[in-house]
């Protein structure tokens, strides 16, 4: 079997990059490549053109007037985690980044690429298995198979894969927004609306159109009284994907949870904003019992796929543990 030719272009400006990909159905953007290059090897992807966006001027982390940070899509995971402003004001993001991958991968993987990485579902990554995310309409081999790592929230009868990013879970809890450039112009959307649930179109991970390029992620101003943290539970202490992860930010004023934001990783096809849990807690006086009620409210809709049933109590325990650690003073 001969491998079809694949062209390579190095983009020098955003508009040219967008035009190059938008005009060619078989073209793909190439950023750090840590997922895409593996997909070439696994035979999951057969582009006729790669447009390298790593030399675009998207590598700055800028202060936003009035507060907040605008992170260029080409900023590496390592540089973002090392930024003093992120470490001091957005610890949940630094912790989420540092919980992901390895030092070598974080030195290359980019902010935009991290968001657009694809599931590590073993059935998706094995071309001998039927997978509707890879081949639209092909069904889902994972259902009824080895499901230990699969979703308990947001899955469909067409796909039960999870989104693998840690960074995106931290960003979801921070109310980050995503800025794109596209063939029809740019747009800004909440990070929580970037990824979509599989429904009957599991091949579409995000709402982006072909040729639409993420150019930046913006963090809103940090609340001076907010505390945040990320906790990741996995099969080994490091260098593994999450079974369950929890990003949380709490802002307690006068003994009341003025604001609380919770996002879950490893349990859903997208970074999962735990709005049901937040609703139980927002405006409430935090108590141990209420933390449990919040977790239960979120997980009421959880569905096990057999082998991953353990994720439901694990998610409950992890949500409670992260909130308890952030609210140590209030719960004392």
């Amino acid at each position: 079997m001969s491998t079809p030719a694949m062209a390579y272009e190095r983009a020098t400006d955003v508009d040219a990059a967008v035009a190059a990909v938008a005009g060619r159905p078989g073209a793909r953007f190439l950023a750090g490549g840590t997922n895409l290059v593996d997909h070439l090897k696994l035979g999951l992807l057969d582009p006729d053109l790669l447009v390298d966006v790593t030399r675009l001027p998207l590598r700055e982390i800028e202060d936003v007037p009035g507060g907040g940070l605008r992170i260029g899509a080409g900023v590496t995971n390592a540089d973002l985690a090392a930024d003093p402003r992120v470490r001091a004001s957005y610890p949940v993001l630094a912790e989420a980044l540092l919980a992901g991958a390895s030092g070598q991968l974080r030195n290359v993987a980019t902010t935009g690429g991290n968001l657009l990485q694809r599931t590590r579902c073993p059935y998706f990554q094995d071309v001998t298995m039927a997978c509707g995310k890879r081949d639209p309409g092909a069904g889902c081999s994972a259902i009824g198979g080895v499901t230990r790592g699969h979703a308990i929230l947001g899955a469909s009868e067409h796909c039960i894969a999870t989104h693998p990013s840690d960074m995106a879970v931290g960003l979801a809890a921070l109310d980050a927004t995503v800025e794109t450039a596209g063939p029809g112009g740019g747009r800004t959307l909440p990070l929580t609306e970037l990824h979509r649930l599989p429904g009957d179109e599991p091949e579409r991970d995000t709402v982006l159109e072909h040729g639409e390029l993420i150019v930046a992620v913006t963090l809103p101003p940090p609340s001076p009284t907010a505390r945040s943290a990320y906790r990741k539970v996995r099969d080994r202490a490091s260098y593994a994907f999450a079974l369950v992860s929890v990003a949380a930010a709490v802002d307690v004023r006068d003994g009341v949870l003025h604001d609380v934001r919770i996002a879950l990783g490893g349990v859903a096809p997208k970074p999962w904003r735990a709005e049901q849990a937040e609703a139980v807690l927002r405006g409430a006086v935090p108590t141990a019992a209420r933390l449990g009620e919040a977790a239960d409210a979120e997980l009421a809709a959880a569905t096990a796929q057999g082998e991953n049933a353990f994720k439901i109590p694990l998610a409950r325990a992890t949500i409670v543990a992260v909130l308890r650690d952030l609210l140590t003073e209030e719960l004392a």
Binding site: G103, Q104, N107
Partner: peptide
């Protein structure tokens, strides 16, 4: 000067 995995980066990107 930065550690990277040479198996997951294309040579053309490192020109």
């Amino acid at each position: 000067g930065r550690r990277v995995l040479s198996c997951l980066t294309l040579a053309v990107q490192q020109d």
